[in-house]
């Protein structure tokens, strides 16, 4: 009898009653595992950073060399994400709307940056864009160096973020109803107007989500960048590399301080991406 009452009155309990067993076991294991692996170590990092006074902390995270690395990491990541936004939308469009030989292979290949170890991508890209490389040699006569400069960093980050925009836009484009486009055409819209006024607004949340994901991933990326960047202090050092340099100098508090800045950024991006996904979700339902 009391069980029935409980079922009718769920807000009093933390979870609704169910006849399915195993909540305690699975939830317990999942939470313990996550706490040991992720949550407690994060607390350890904040604790380490908080050993510093605010003034010291501020000095560490605004050190000239660190600020130069923010500029490169965020600037190059933003540029790479913009490149990915443009090419990603085109790629998704071509994969959904056009037929061409080898389409399935290319569709599968788009995920290569997720599957290829970053170090492997790093050394391959460095070789290609070095002054003697397949592509680099054609830029060298014009005085443009790609590997070991900020341009190389952008190239590596573009590679790393390539799948995000494609994979967020592709399913939305696939699910769009042909009727809205037909209606626009019937009402006299040109193809470009249809794209700009009808298709683009419904794709926008997905495009922005992919953009934010590519950007967030690029800022944290390490493996593919360290090879192509050349790692010259003040010029081609990325922020994650500075954490490693601080650690090698046994400056744990300094490493933790920079780590906190990056983590804060990651949280903000995670929040932003979640909000974008909610927005695209409500868009999807409104249609």
């Amino acid at each position: 009898m009391s069980a029935v009452v409980l079922e009718r009155d769920p807000p009093r309990t933390l979870r609704r009653r169910s006849i399915i067993p195993g909540f305690g076991l699975t939830m317990g294991f999942a939470l313990t595992y996550m706490s040991l692996l992720v949550l407690i170590p994060f607390v350890a990092m904040f604790a380490k950073a908080l050993e510093l006074s605010w003034a010291d902390m501020w000095a560490l995270v605004t050190d000239e060399r660190v600020v130069a690395s923010y500029r490169l990491s965020f600037g190059a990541s933003l540029l790479a994400a913009v490149l990915n936004l443009f090419f990603g939308v085109l790629t998704a469009w071509a994969l959904v709307r056009y037929e061409f030989p080898g389409k399935r292979v290319i569709d599968a290949l788009v995920d290569l940056p997720f599957a290829l170890p970053t170090a492997v991508a790093g050394i391959a890209l460095t070789g290609i864009y070095a002054t003697t490389g397949w592509v680099g040699q054609y830029f060298e006569p014009f005085g443009i160096r790609i590997s070991y400069t900020a341009i190389g960093v952008v190239i590596a980050l573009t590679f790393i973020g390539l799948p995000f925009v494609v994979r967020t836009v592709q399913p939305v484009l696939q699910d769009l109803e042909a009727e809205t486009e037909e209606a626009a055409a019937t009402l006299g819209a040109t193809r470009w107007q249809t794209f700009r006024r009808v298709l683009f607004p419904s794709l926008l949340p997905a495009i922005l989500t992919g953009f934010a994901m590519a950007f967030a991933r690029a800022v944290g990326e390490y493996g593919s960048v360290v090879f192509i960047a050349g790692n010259i202090p003040f010029r081609t050092e990325i922020t994650p590399l500075l954490i490693i340099i601080r650690l090698e100098q046994y400056d744990f508090a300094g490493a933790a301080a920079i780590g906190c800045v990056m983590l804060l950024f990651a949280f903000v991006m995670l929040l932003l991406i979640n909000m974008l996904q909610l927005w695209s979700g409500s868009r999807g339902r409104a249609h």
Partner: peptide, 19 residues
């Protein structure tokens, strides 16, 4: 929270284990 490791840099993952 499950998504967190996707959002943070792998270097941070190493850092917190060292700390």
């Amino acid at each position: 929270l499950i998504d967190l490791p996707f959002a943070v840099s792998p270097v941070i993952a190493g850092l917190i284990i060292v700390l």
